[in-house]
Amino acid sequence: MATQLYYEDVEAGMDMPPLVKHPTTKQLVQWAGASGDYYELHYDKDFARAQGFPDVLVHGKLKFGLLGQLITDWIGEEGFLKKLGCSYRGTDHPGEDLVCKGKVTNKYVEDDQHLVECEIWVENGKGEKTTPGKATVILPSRG
């Protein structure tokens, strides 16, 4: 695992290391099985086309999961994810690169907790933010 991140290490405006993913149809099927979401839109191309989409869609909640990994990779095992949210604004398809990115927007201490707020998002190959969101994490302090 990477070195532990501390509250003192982060400042507003700082970028998180991006997480690059390349979802395949196989991964969507894995997610369907793991999550129990068997909606055909995510694995049946004919079904997706009949709905007006060029291909099957990456599940929104799978993208939530990718953003979750972005955060837990960044905060390390001593950090705690307090809140994670995202909007499924744009559709994504398998075979495209998805890049999860994040930026620190604020840091403060409240009730002895060292809190960091971040803007996070999933970006497609065209640089469009298909899944914007926010996260709040608690980081350890060097005190």
Partner: peptide
């Protein structure tokens, strides 16, 4: 494990 594999997240935690 199935969930972690579906995300492609190798975190040992």
């Amino acid at each position: 494990r199935m969930m972690a594999e579906a995300i492609g997240d190798p975190n040992p935690l």
